[in-house]
């Protein structure tokens, strides 16, 4: 598994492309079949969860490659990152179109006054340049160093996204945001230089 041919990698990419679009297709199908009582709520929830899950998956790849030396995994990361943006945009669109139905004064009020929406909106804005620069031409143009520095924005985006989740739980429904927080903590810990080096040496 350490080395895979280019052909294998491109096949894996196709499979991954299909797998990652599936949650949105399943959600759309359920709505069109009339299975969903409140589609705004449903789509917002599903796309929000997938945004966070895939964000954490992109963070997982680097330490996992360091441990396993499956360097080809790095080639999948960009697609996963673009899917993060895809679900984040769907999430925002569900809020804008289905939930608030283009009531821009309320949208503005929400973004300014309501902390969790402010944070979520900032996270979405920060994702935008990362998505735009995730193609070969712009990577070349920026140079890998500057590109890499830009993409470190992810370390702001993840905590923003998770706080956005924390701030809207009711009662003690904190199992899910807590799970995401713990995973993030572990993934960041694996980047702590002394630990990262140790993991690499194995």
């Amino acid at each position: 598994m350490r080395r895979l041919s280019a052909q294998h990698v491109s096949r894996i990419k196709i499979v991954l492309f299909i797998l990652l679009v599936l949650p949105s297709i399943v959600a759309a199908t359920n709505i069109l079949r009339g299975e969903v009582a409140e589609p705004a709520d449903y789509i917002t929830h599903i796309t929000g969860e997938w945004t966070l899950r895939l964000l954490l998956l992109t963070l997982f790849i680097r330490p996992f490659v360091n441990i396993s030396s499956w360097h080809w995994l790095i080639k999948l990361r960009r697609m996963i990152g673009l899917y993060v943006f895809y679900y984040a945009v769907l999430h925002f669109c569900a809020y804008l179109l289905l939930d608030l139905q283009l009531d821009f004064s309320t949208v503005l009020e929400d973004i300014i006054k309501r902390k969790y929406i402010t944070l979520g909106f900032i996270a979405l804005l920060l994702l935008l340049p990362l998505a735009i620069t995730s193609n070969d031409a712009l990577i070349k143009k920026l140079g890998s160093r500057r590109w890499g520095r830009l993409h470190q924005a992810i370390y702001f985006i993840v905590p923003l996204g998770i706080t956005h989740y924390w701030l809207q739980i009711k009662g003690d429904e904190y199992a899910e945001p807590l799970t995401y927080s713990i995973i993030t903590f572990l993934l960041l810990l694996m980047r702590y230089p002394p630990l990262a080096q140790k993991l690499r040496q194995r």
Partner: peptide
Amino acid sequence: HPRWSQSSEKALTSSLWVER
């Protein structure tokens, strides 16, 4: 509500979508 406006509501109707 501190986390959302109460000025309108999503009506669950026979439509596939909700109507404000």
